[in-house]
Structure formats: structure tokens, C-alpha cells
């Protein structure tokens, strides 16, 4: 039989933050967590983590408090939508940058 190894190159990668490049630069709205409302932060318990669970880019850590990796967060807003405590607000990137200055 032909010795060729078929299908040697396909688009396949391990899931994880940054697989699609530095997608943080795509962001228009930045999710900001209010730690006074965030359930795991407020109770100091490993609980809830809806933001971690629903993030399609796996850029939210399952830690107390949850931390968003802004290098890869595209700002889709799913975490803010899913947060049962309404602890995440989507802030305009431009406004945020001005405030930082």
C-alpha cells in the first residue's frame, strides 16, 4: 500500500486562552467585576463561577476572586449576562482608558 500518511495537516489545537491570537485587542466593552457583589469574593467560598463556566474563551479563572485575562477577553459580555449577582458590568473600553489616565 501507499506509504503516505494521509491527513497530516489539519486545523486542530488544544483549547485554551490565546489559541486565536491576542484577541483582547478586539474588545470594545470590558467586563469589570464588582467584588462587593461577586458571590465567591463576598462569601470567600468556591461557589457560583458562572463567569468561568460560560466564558467561551476560557479567560476567567476559577479563583477567589475570579480574574479575567484581558489579553484574550474579546468582551463578548456573556459573563455579565450570566452572572446571577449582576456583579459584572460592561464598561466602554474608551471610557476605561480615559479613567486609567
Amino acid at each position: 500500500m501507499t506509504s503516505r500518511t494521509f491527513c497530516d495537516k489539519i486545523s486542530r489545537s488544544k483549547p485554551g486562552p490565546g489559541d486565536g491570537g491576542n484577541t483582547g485587542s478586539w474588545r470594545v466593552l470590558r467586563p469589570v467585576i464588582n467584588l462587593e457583589a461577586c458571590i465567591p469574593a463576598k462569601r470567600n467560598k468556591k461557589a457560583c463561577f458562572h463567569c468561568w463556566l460560560y466564558c467561551p474563551d476560557s479567560v476567567v479563572s476559577k479563583t477567589i476572586p475570579p480574574v479575567i485575562n484581558y489579553a484574550y477577553c474579546k468582551g463578548c459580555g456573556i459573563c455579565a449576562e450570566e452572572c446571577p449577582a449582576d456583579a459584572i458590568s460592561m464598561v466602554d473600553e474608551a471610557t476605561h482608558t480615559v479613567e486609567e489616565k
Binding site: I10, R12, S13, K14, D19
Partner: peptide, 13 residues
């Protein structure tokens, strides 16, 4: 688990 046929950039990386 793996990602299949996601956005593939023009160059290798």
C-alpha cells in the same frame, strides 16, 4: 478535547 477548524491565520504560528 480540541478545537477544529477555528480561524486559521494567513501565516503559520
Amino acid at each position: 478535547p480540541g478545537n477544529f477548524n477555528t480561524v486559521t491565520l494567513p501565516d503559520v504560528r
